[in-house]
Design a protein around this nucleic acid. Structure first.
Lengths: 345, 345
DNA sequence: CGCGTTTACGTCGTTCGTAACGATA
DNA sequence: TATCGTTACGAACGACGTAAACGCG
């Protein structure tokens, strides 16, 4: 199908500029800055693009851009695909030419960044010293923002899956919670397994909610008709530990957060079975090319994932298909200081 | 992820040239001709693209291009997506600006072109006088070639679905065969329904095989232990009719091929039930934007297809999903002169 | 008047076609 | 020597940035 009388052919740059404008609140000046180019240039290219397509992509309010037209929305959508594929071609090429160079951007939460990733990244760096790493830490929401802004290659988080519907999420491992108390605490003397009822007796120190699905912790108590006495919440385990050490209360943290160093003055008691198990996943854009070193990173992070499985995600359509692929039940369980991941029942 | 030191940015033209080279037997001169540009230009752009990507896309045999490298194959694949989306943007734009103009290319077989499409196209022309129509007739294989060459918007054919795995095929209607004989032929005097055994008594004139799944006709006879005496085969029904008129034998043609004019000197007897029913489909590229007038064309061709169903094909993943969508059993049946399509049992 | 866009214009880099050259069978 | 790809070069075009004008709040 041959369409119309193309005067000046559409250029990739015009599409790039268009997206920059769309992604910067329809502010051409801001777009130009981000593109490291002059503002009139961007303005002109937009005009040329609109001229060539023969339609308005944006509505104008006086001289400023007011909104996106219906046509504009569709064009922008397509333009994103184009730019994504162009990026993919570049990635592809870099992978052939200098396999070992490039950038790897990861966005993740505190727990991963502090307790899980250090070992992974250490190994990764030794294998790919020339790959420059960018590690961004933030809340699930912040990570989601970085994902939308197209700034990262991998997102790693726990729960909050709905925030990342535009990524393929590969379940990576399970973890339970651990109960942290000072070494001489009464709970350490308990002969039997700790119950929620036991915990409800003490003031608790744990994570800020909105983590792993709105307060699965609180619900676990509620399900048994208990009301926990949460005296303090923090975003990260280090802070929690500090307050546990101060005797403020009993800590409940992710199992990975148990540092072997902690054993000097803290006891970590298993909370297996008390709370629902959490699943940490690693996510990436559906249609982005994964470079060799990226595939290796995934394997370092979640060694149980085979290359074939990763390849299969390429063709999977829905998140459900992927979850089936990885058989969520049989994932490894991570266990903090007493490391060595073991397969779950 | 930011890759490498991009000297000169990749251009759409370079991708276009690349595809032209790939699609012209790695012959740069031929590619240049098809692109209506000079050969050195194409050569240079290819070199620039390879330079920028930092890898060879083609192997060189002396100075000529010998083959495609592994990297080249992947880049070409991506480049096709890019160009397809760019085309889509153009289509989109044209659809907004001049809804009623454009080009519609259809590739189809003789039977459709001669007996089914005339009515459809007449109506279409009156609705969209400004759309320039291209109707290509050929064998299934030739149609498949045109599809691969990206030259057509719609393919319409019967059976041979495996040839068109890159298209979405929408089942459009069923048809049976009809038996054509001179008006005074013995078969017209038969009181009961004609059987295969009856037909096996006469010399037959029918289509060249490789049509509707390798000789379903021959197999229908074989299944009853009969061997038909096919004295003549042709590609199209007009030729068959000519020989039937000459008394060469009994004609077996698609039901749509019965022209009311034929009734002057030919009798068309129903062959319903004797041979497997054939299904004619209309196919289009999975990821191409369908312009308004194209949607309307589909509706003219197969009025039972709703706009919603067509929209659904956009999201369907497999051909199976589509077939389910259109419930192959309940398609209309086309019936030649005694026109007026009727729903099947 | 500040903010943001558009217009105007000079500079510079790129594309394109023609023509000449090189290599291959 | 015929075919195909590369190199060379001048003309035309297009992109970019600076400076200035324009509209709007």
């Amino acid at each position: 199908m041959h369409v119309g009388s193309m005067r000046g052919p559409m250029k990739l740059q015009q599409l790039k500029y268009l997206l920059a404008i769309a992604d910067n609140g329809l502010n051409i000046t801001a777009a130009a800055e981000r593109l490291y180019t002059s503002q009139p240039g961007v303005s002109k290219q937009l005009k040329l693009l609109e001229e060539e397509l023969g339609l308005q992509l944006f509505t104008r309010k006086g001289k400023s851009l007011g909104g996106v037209t219906a046509a504009g929305r569709q064009v922008i959508e397509r333009a994103r695909v184009v730019m994504q594929e162009v990026e993919n071609i570049r990635s592809l090429a870099s992978d052939y030419y200098h396999e070992e160079e490039g950038t790897l951007s990861i966005a993740t939460t505190h727990t991963q960044a502090r307790y899980v990733l250090p070992a992974v990244i250490k190994e990764f760096r030794s294998r790919y010293p020339k790959v420059s790493l960018e590690l961004h830490q933030g809340t699930s929401e912040q990570i989601a923002d970085m994902v939308s802004a197209n700034e990262i290659d991998f997102a790693i988080a726990t729960g909050s899956r709905d925030l990342f519907s535009n990524l393929l999420l590969v379940p990576s491992y399970h973890w339970d919670r651990k109960i942290l108390v000072p070494r001489s605490h009464e709970l350490t003397k308990l002969e039997r397994k700790i119950t929620l009822r036991d915990l409800a007796e003490y003031p608790l120190v744990t994570y800020v909610f909105s983590f792993g699905g709105q307060s699965s912790l609180k619900r676990a108590f509620a399900d048994e008709g208990l009301e926990p006495d949460v005296v303090f919440t923090a975003r990260d385990a280090d802070v929690i530990k500090t307050y546990v050490r101060m005797g403020l209360g009993v800590g409940i943290v992710a199992s990975m957060a148990e540092d072997c160093e902690d054993r000097k003055d803290l006891s970590a008691l298993s909370a297996e079975g008390l709370f629902p198990r959490s699943t940490t996943w690693i996510g990436f854009r559906k249609d982005a090319v994964l470079r060799r070193y990226m595939l290796d990173f995934v394997q370092l992070f979640a060694p149980h994932i085979t290359a074939d499985q990763l390849e299969s995600t390429r063709h999977a359509r829905s998140q459900e298909e992927i979850d089936a692929l990885f058989d969520t039940q049989s994932l490894p369980v991570r266990n903090g200081c007493s490391d060595g991941m073991t397969a779950a029942a």
